[in-house]
Design a binder for these strands. Structure first.
Lengths: 155, 155
DNA sequence: CATCATCTGACTAATACTGACCATTATGAT
DNA sequence: ATCATAATGGTCAGTATTAGTCAGATGATG
């Protein structure tokens, strides 16, 4: 009785060749060939099993000599604080509220002054320069959440 | 593992003969011959890997005694170079070109790894998540130029 | 049988490589 | 001086080689 899907098998295979290394580089078509599945299934496996939440960072390059690189990253201690903030931000946030979040991060020593300044520049109304206030606030939320997610780990 | 493209090999070769020197001069046909590729591939390698975004200035001369000169430059030290860079970015920039700029800043030790990573997520296609490709590239250019100007008036 | 996970393939996007044709510069003959 | 020729590098469009996306089909599970 073999309950394991081929996706599970591929997942285990990739983890086994990752072994103790920090990262591996694979050819999508090679893996797909090896397990006799369509290439896009490799994307499916990666998307469902090698997420940031699981501690993996994935990068790729197309074209000749292309590859998919899977990297293991170390999750940090501030994860709880960051998750709470991410939850509070939701899908939209004003400039002032975003600035408050940065101040909080700085006060909690999660980020340095310089890092905070760089984030502020990116979140400012002036830089985003959009007509649609609603779209601006949504974009700002995406940027801020992306920052917070990046702070969850080190590589 | 023979996964690197010949362009990658040529890139590394040029960087190795550049070494610690400020600049090198090569003959296009010689390099092409050495790696058994058509001469125009050298142009391709230079165009994709030795851009100003990558921290290189390239000049050339045709005709007898012609050459291609590759010079390593620092992006922030020299006001002229920074202005050239901002000029090259213009009002629109792709994800890859923007990433190259951040990588160069990190290589020059103008920014820390973490600062670079934070900027990278802000500039990533995934974070910006816009339907309009054109609008996305314009926003990315505003963000990147804002970062550069922030760094310029600080160091 | 309802729902979620898995799997597929057609279409898209990015990168690499090639060769025909073009532009520039040096040199030597007249 | 002028011009022809040789010796360089540049451009661009077309082909090849990769990976990504997404909607729909299929399978597994409660």
């Amino acid at each position: 009785m073999d309950r394991k899907s081929i996706s599970d098998v591929i997942e285990n295979y990739l983890k086994s060749i990752l072994g103790n290394d920090e990262q591996i580089e694979i050819r999508r078509s090679e893996i797909a060939n090896h397990f006799d599945v369509v290439p896009s299934q490799i994307n499916y496996v990666i998307k469902t099993r090698f997420t940031l939440q699981n501690g993996y960072l994935v990068q790729s390059k197309r074209g000749g000599g292309g590859y998919i690189r899977i990297e293991r990253v170390k999750l940090l201690d501030d994860v709880d604080v960051l998750d709470m903030l991410i939850d509070a931000i939701g899908s939209s946030i004003s400039e002032n509220d975003a600035f408050d979040v940065i101040k909080t991060l700085y006060r909690e020593k999660v980020i340095s002054r310089r890092e905070g300044d760089l984030m502020l520049v990116a979140l400012s109304k002036h830089t985003l320069d959009m007509n649609d206030h609603n779209a601006e606030n949504k974009l700002r939320a995406r940027l801020l959440v992306a920052f917070l997610n990046r702070l969850r780990y080190e590589s």
